[in-house]
């Protein structure tokens, strides 16, 4: 308005000034805006590339952790078979060796009885290995029973008070999902037993809208999300990385935090169920 008033009364020189400065100002604004957009875009692209690199790095760490975990599991099974089943079967073979026919009947019977006992132990051992690979309770009766079973065993040992409560598990997850959730719980419990020195563990289950929740509380030394992120960047925390790769397969979110009261540590696993068909 002021510019217009000045222009109306003024000489052509003033119009020139208004034209020059007005045009330059508008051009500066327009070019400034375009440059801002271009540089902002470049910054966004750089940021996205960094994010991508970090994600790839994270994926690599998780993959390595998964491979290492598989190798450790294989070594454990191999050790169980080699150290336990191997000597047992070798002993049974000793009892049943060629010299047995030369013995008297009572020695033969005793040897056969001993061999039978050893073979029974071997069967039990192989059953235990098999159960550790795939818990039969989980397969036959579902996640709730498997978790209850696991917690009863822990409580039964007397080292810790372990309890679980499933509030709403009328609709079961799909078997492969149940196995993954069970493995996550197993790994968490394992970590608590090994590192936390807790006196109790309590697991609760619930549904909220389209989400399946598992919450695990304990009163020992725990970790928070910041610790998890720190461990993710290092080669340590194989169990945690396994938990995270399983959570990733489930498209689930896992949060490690300290309770509001600052007394307990809490781990929450949140599984979106709309992506996974539930079975009744």
């Amino acid at each position: 308005m002021i510019l217009l008033q000045i222009t109306n009364q003024s000489s052509p020189l003033n119009i020139s000034g208004v034209l020059f400065f007005g045009t330059m100002g508008m051009l500066a604004l327009a070019i400034g805006l375009v440059l801002f957009i271009i540089f902002h875009q470049r910054r966004v692209i750089r940021y996205q590339l960094q994010l991508k690199e970090m994600e790839e790095e994270q994926q690599k760490i998780l993959l390595n952790a998964s491979i290492r975990w598989q190798e450790e599991e294989r070594q454990r099974i191999a050790a169980d078979l080699h150290d336990d089943a191997g000597p047992l079967l070798a002993t049974a073979r000793l009892y049943l060796n060629e010299n047995l026919v030369k013995q008297d009947i009572s020695t033969q019977l005793q040897a056969i009885y001993n061999a039978k006992q050893i073979i029974d132990d071997t069967i039990q051992l192989i059953r235990n290995i098999s159960h550790s690979l795939m818990p039969p309770t989980l397969k036959n009766f579902g996640l709730e029973s498997a978790v209850n079973d696991l917690f009863q065993k822990i409580s039964g040992s007397g080292s810790m008070n372990a309890s679980s409560r499933f509030h709403d598990y009328r609709q079961r997850l799909r078997p492969e999902q149940e196995l993954l959730v069970f493995r996550v719980i197993q790994e968490l419990v394992n970590n608590i037993l090994k590192h936390s020195n807790a006196s109790f563990i309590h697991v609760t289950q619930n549904y909220n809208e389209d989400r399946f929740f598992i919450r695990l509380h304990h009163d020992g030394r725990g970790i928070t999300q910041a610790d998890v992120e720190r461990l993710n960047k290092s080669a340590l925390g194989l169990g945690l990385k396994n938990i995270q790769s399983r959570a990733r397969v489930l498209h689930a979110k896992i949060d490690f935090e300290k309770d509001m009261s600052q007394t307990y540590y809490k781990v929450t696993l949140e599984v979106p169920v709309e992506e996974y068909e539930m079975i009744t």
Binding site: T7, N8, G22, T23, M26, L27, V34
Partner: peptide
């Protein structure tokens, strides 16, 4: 944006000058 920003003032004053 460059064209319209730059020609805004000349357009505005063109009628009277």
């Amino acid at each position: 944006i460059i064209y319209f920003a730059g020609t805004f003032f000349p357009f505005i004053y063109a009628q009277s000058h």
